[in-house]
Nucleic acid binder design. Structure first.
Length: 964
RNA sequence: GCCCGAGUGGCGGAAUGGCAGACGCGGAGGACUCAAAAUCCUUUGUACGAGAGUACGUGUGGGUUCGAGUCCCACCUCGGGCACCA
């Protein structure tokens, strides 16, 4: 690596020179506000800058967004900026292509990581957060990212979280009216359902145009009862419900934050279901729209599928089975199989179990319920377990055929899904089949499976299910599926049609109705921690009351005792204690909320980590606005719907390009969409969705090494000897993992800046593969891009004098190569194929290198083309080429179409599909000419060996294939 | 178990159905140097061959096609997501 060396030419592109160049240009960009993007209105408005001087046309807008980081105490490693470099390259390229690009970076600084770091270091999170943010800003700036610094935000800034609280109150002060027509705008004509201000609900109740849920006249309710009715409608509400209690973290967490094996995604502590009074957000009201509108988004199918699965929509029916203890309601996706329902299964926790159970079964039922209660959810959800259950002694009536079916309880039925009770159709459901076999319950067939199904299972075709290896699931003619009161499925073979007929019958006979069920639960929104946004809520004797907008923000109170009260991670029956609860001077408050000064108690929860990231992209647009969270004109300019959406559908609006990791698929990306839709419904934004195009970048992995005790050792001190690895002489084993402290394999960007400079690091990260692929980090490979920049520099600059040193104008072949390169680089950058764009630029430079010096007429286009990728060295070269101003808004080179067309082309010739030779023909030669030239070729003749060609296929401009 | 995604040199990876391995690393050889590092040049899929060259080659097996890394079917392996969701 280049250290001072007497033999090294003084103006070689060394790490030291790169650093010098980079620091100077970063200062220049800062001083000249080079990346300020003008808004159409408000304090950031700059009408002149919105026009492209080259064309006189209004610039097209482009909003490029990274998932903003939380400020970690250890700073960045080289795995972090992969996406940031990608968005920077894209933003810089688009700026040169004439776009008005909004591109900045903020910090998601509330939440557990920041708080845990503060607790560890014993310093107040406000202090550690500020210093961590400062360090990360320095590291990001050193990369040369072209952020508009005016737009940067920090979610812990009271000027920011004031508006987070304001949006919370918007949600608190609204309700979901499923029947209201969609707001005029971008939803389909006739669409129904939208959030409305709670004041409109109150007005309708007062007027009597809407009745209370239990039918009592509004005027007869006392104020407390009226408050309860209204509060029960709010989109943000307090409720007593089963929540995820995590003693190890000392807080409750959302469903989305619990891993599949029942632990917290932060800290990996056990999580227990407990009934607690907590804040919830009614995201379930938006379940349909959150699924349906995925179709309007330019996102990968993988992420869309993850969101669809999480929301978990299934269409079916609710059906009531009469019993001695009252109706038992079940949810089923297959109402068409009701005739095959031969027993029922209730979750052990089902409220009707006690009244259903007969005395002679009471003991067994009680024992089973106790055993089920002792099991963790995770243990109950192992599908491979043998089915267990007990009979209650009771029966219920199947509504379609009047059959009395036994009612069982079993832990494979979950209280938390559907109604907590199922009708069991053993011939058509895996679990019911297994259960019926386990307990010897009858399995009548209700569909005639096709012959192929029997063949597949190697059994004779029969409706006697005793020979069946499992249930039949699919379309097939129904049998034994008719009753005397007008429902007849027999002979029908369409499941969809069977469902429809059954649902109609159920509704007509008041035994049930078609419905849609979701896995999605309401979002648990409160946390018992310190480092978060306080709720702008106080309580009186009737419940929560909003703090008036004018009194926002409710500042997070200063305290030294910010540590959360955490518990033994396994202490299920501990109770959460909010740190804010301890601050009596703060919690007890006297306010005048319209009816005189009275005492109130503040809400002592804080909002979850995700609150600040639910809307930050909107604040980037108008960061200094004191009157509104964003100026509507500014939001519409940057986020408003465009002409054409994905697959020619409506464009929902939103960020033009959002780059980030896949780990937020069902957390941030779901919550943020929900908040945005509420804001849309309430008329605060013109866009239906926050992120129109989502691009998931890959992860940078790094080798990690474990010694014989399975302990990770410092990767930098591991030596390789012919494929084997040792650490201080001891053998170690290699694995690949995410870069970080825990695997002791982090590489800091600062090391790379010192060894090569930021431009080299940028090129290396972009060159190792497509942006969406994860790839291993290899420090030794970085030198390749360093050498490329050295060659490029040397072709233009004299290494001895530092002066410009160009060659004669390029020959025609070189000019053609240049234009091919321009064309290719443009399309690669447009498609975010940055790795192949770099490859094309290296090829062009390697061609130039052969002649020693860069042709005089190539220096500028090459410099402009590398500018998005390695902006510092490009600026330096641009200045040496005699330009006084920065190149960041210099037009990106445009290929001359005439130079992309060759006069003569080389065509590969295949004989029987095997490549044999190449021929050179005029580009516009007709097929007969090409064929003649191919047949005349000596190697082709040799390959044919005198055989007469049967057929000659000429693919114009591509290839010739001779079939002999 | 179900649903996605991916398998190409020693490594990262290129390749609108048309010359597989662009570009980079690494390796080999050479230049410069007393020497080394750095830099530069040549070379580098495998096998056989002195060489021209020939054969083989994109996880496996089939298929479609004049032609398949690319399209279709089955399977194997790896990665990710979901998982007794009625």
């Amino acid at each position: 690596m280049a250290h001072a060396d007497p033999d090294t030419p003084p103006f070689r592109y060394s790490a030291a020179l790169a650093q010098d160049i980079e620091m100077r240009w970063q200062q220049y960009w800062d001083a000249n506000h080079s990346f300020d993007a003008p808004n159409p209105a408000g304090p950031l408005a700059d009408p002149a800058a919105m026009t492209d001087p080259a064309t006189g046309q209004s610039r097209q807008k482009l909003f490029v967004l990274d998932m903003f980081p939380y400020p970690s105490g250890t700073g960045l490693h080289v795995g972090h900026p992969l996406g940031y470099i990608g968005t920077d390259v894209f933003s810089r390229y688009k700026r040169m292509a004439g776009f008005n690009v909004c591109y900045t970076m903020g910090f998601d600084a509330f939440g557990l990581p920041a708080e845990q770091y503060a607790v560890q270091t014993g310093q107040h999170p406000a202090i550690t957060t500020a210093s961590n943010v400062a360090n990360m800003r320095r590291q990001l700036k050193r990369l040369g990212l072209s952020h508009d610094p005016r737009r940067s935000i920090d979610t812990t800034d009271p000027g920011y979280y004031r508006w987070t609280q304001w949006i919370f109150l918007q949600i608190f002060d609204s309700w979901y009216d499923a029947e209201a027509p969609a707001r005029d705008g971008i939803r389909e004509a006739g669409a129904k359902g939208r959030a409305r201000p709670i004041s409109e609900l109150i007005a309708e109740l007062e007027r009597g145009t809407r009745t209370t849920p239990d039918g009592r006249p509004w005027a007869t309710l006392n104020p407390g009862q009226q408050r309860s009715v209204v509060d029960a409608h709010r989109l943000a509400y307090v409720s007593e419900a089963p929540v995820n209690w995590c003693p190890g973290l000392g807080t409750v967490v959302a469903n989305e934050e619990v891993t599949a094996d029942g632990r917290s995604d932060r800290g990996n502590f056990p999580v227990f279901k407990r009934n607690m009074r907590q804040w919830m957000m009614r995201i379930t009201s938006y379940a349909d729209r959150l699924i349906d509108d995925l179709d309007l988004l330019d996102w990968s199918d993988a992420i869309k599928t993850m969101q669809r699965n999480w929301i978990g929509r299934s269409d079916g029916a609710r059906v009531r089975f009469a019993s001695a203890a009252g109706d038992i309601e079940v949810f089923t996706t297959r109402p068409d199989t009701l005739f095959g329902a031969t027993f029922m299964v209730l979750a052990p926790e089902h409220p009707l179990v006690d009244s259903l159970t007969t005395p002679e079964h009471a003991e067994a039922v009680a024992a089973y319920r106790a055993a089920a209660a002792a099991k963790k959810d995770i243990d109950r959800q192992d599908a491979t377990r043998t089915k267990t259950g007990v009979f209650t002694g009771a029966t219920a009536t199947n509504p379609v055929n009047g059959a009395e079916v036994p009612v069982w309880i079993a832990d494979y039925v979950l209280m938390g899904y559907g109604t907590g009770a199922i009708m069991a159709v053993p011939c058509g459901d895996e679990r019911d089949f297994a259960f019926a076999r386990q307990f010897g319950l009858p399995i009548p067939a209700i569909q005639q499976p096709p012959q192929a199904w029997f063949d597949d299972h190697d059994i004779a075709a029969t409706l006697d299910t005793s020979s069946w290896p499992g249930p039949f699931i699919g379309d097939a003619p129904y049998v034994q599926s008719s009753n005397a009161s007008g429902l007849s499925l027999d002979g029908l073979s369409s499941v969809a049609e069977g469902k429809r007929l059954t649902n109609d019958w159920l509704e007509a006979h008041e035994a049930g109705h078609g419905t849609t069920n979701f896995k999605l639960r309401d979002w648990l929104f409160s946390r018992q921690r310190y480092w978060g946004e306080p709720f702008p809520i106080v309580y009186d004797e009737h419940g929560p009351i909003a703090i008036p907008d004018a009194d926002l923000p409710v500042l997070l109170p200063e305290t030294d005792s910010f540590s959360p009260r955490t518990f033994d991670p396994d202490d299920e029956f501990s109770n959460p204690e909010s740190p804010l609860d301890r601050l009596e001077w703060w919690t007890e408050v006297e306010l005048d909320l319209g009816n005189g000064t009275r005492p109130y108690r503040r809400d002592t929860n804080v909002m979850p980590q995700w609150a600040g990231s639910c809307w930050y992209e909107l604040r980037y647009l108008d960061p200094t606005n004191e009157k509104a969270f964003v100026d509507p004109a500014v939001e519409e300019y940057w986020m408003g719907p465009q002409a054409v959406g994905v697959n020619g559908r409506r464009h929902p609006g939103g960020v033009d390009l959002y780059v980030g990791g896949v780990e937020h698929a069902v957390l941030h990306l779901l919550y943020s969409r929900f908040w945005h839709k509420v804001l849309y419904d309430l008329g605060h934004v013109s866009s239906l969705e926050p992120y129109y195009r989502l691009y998931n970048q890959g992860m940078i992995l790094a080798a990690a090494f474990k010694d014989e005790r399975e302990i990770y050792v410092e990767s930098t001190e591991v030596e390789e000897h012919g494929g084997a690895f040792t650490f201080h002489g001891e053998p170690v084993t290699r694995e690949w993992g995410k870069m970080g402290k825990s695997l002791k394999n982090a590489v800091s960007p600062d090391e790379m800046y010192d060894a090569y400079g930021a431009d080299t690091l940028r090129l290396y990260e972009m060159s190792t593969g497509p942006m969406d692929a994860s790839r291993p980090w290899e420090t030794r490979d970085v030198v390749g891009m360093y050498r490329f920049l050295q060659r490029l520099w040397r072709n233009i600059v004299d290494e001895q004098t530092g002066d410009l040193s160009l060659g004669a104008p390029a020959d025609e072949a070189t000019i053609r190569l240049l234009h091919h390169t321009i064309d290719g680089v443009r399309s690669d950058l447009d498609g975010l194929r940055i790795n192949t764009a770099i490859s094309k630029l290296i090829q062009l430079n390697n061609h130039v290198t052969k002649s020693g010096r860069c042709p005089s007429d190539l220096a500028e286009p090459i410099t402009l083309m590398i500018a998005p990728l390695c902006p510092h060295v490009a600026e330096e070269l641009w200045a040496k080429l005699g330009h006084a101003a920065s190149l960041i808004r210099e037009p990106f080179p445009v290929a001359d179409p005439a130079l992309l067309i060759e006069d003569t082309i080389e065509l590969p010739v295949q004989v029987n599909g095997k490549f044999r030779s190449k021929i050179s023909v005029a580009a516009d030669a007709d097929n007969a000419t090409v064929e003649a030239a191919a047949l005349a070729d000596a190697k082709v003749c040799a390959a044919l060996g005198g055989a007469v060609p049967k057929k000659v296929i000429v693919v114009a401009g591509r290839t010739v294939n001779i079939v002999a």
